[in-house]
Amino acid sequence: MKTCNVMIVGVGGQGTLLASRILGRVFLKNGYDVKISEVHGMSQRGGSVVTYVRAGEKVYSPIIEKGEADYILSFEKIEGARYINGLKKDGILVTNTGETDPMTVITGACEYPHDALEKLTAAGVKTDETDALTLAREAGSEKAVNVVLIGRLSRYFEFPEEDWMEALCETVKPAFLEMNQKAFRLGKG
């Protein structure tokens, strides 16, 4: 059983914690040892956030460091770029194309690099881009961006779809289950 490292990055409030919990549960159902690391508190308030999901025969460290991630799942266009050196040489950046201006851009101190993904691709990084917001709206809620992206990431694993659905069932509120299932399937495409 090969160890798999997934970094989930985004903006505080986008639901990276839920996404990491869904992914962790799917690994667990498939017999992996799992560790997930989250950050709470001050750093959550609209700041850049990262959670780590690690799965394998036996996992020790709960975090993922430079050059260790098989996948970076990014909820916002430049957040994947921020953590790009977490990726392995042959790792894949699965990313939302949606942009959320950080305060440094709002105040005019910095310019938003709209071409970040093109530049990363030109530098040899494998990227897989999705307009998750459009798909989330189609599913019924802008808040489902996280589940759309988990759906997209699921394409890289051979786990049965019912495992993902079960994990959704265990982690989202029953009232939003159907909408999230739709979001997942739209993301998976």
Binding site: V11, G12, M42, S43, Q44, R45, G46, G47, S48, K66, G67, I78, E79, A81, R82, I84, N85, G86, L87, K88, K89, P102, M103, T104, V105, A109, C110, E111, Y112, P113, A116, K119, L120, A123, G124, V125
Partner: peptide, 13 residues
């Protein structure tokens, strides 16, 4: 690992 990529800071707000 890939070379670091400079992006605008995103502090908590």
């Amino acid at each position: 690992s890939p070379a670091p990529f400079e992006v605008p800071g995103r502090p908590p707000i």
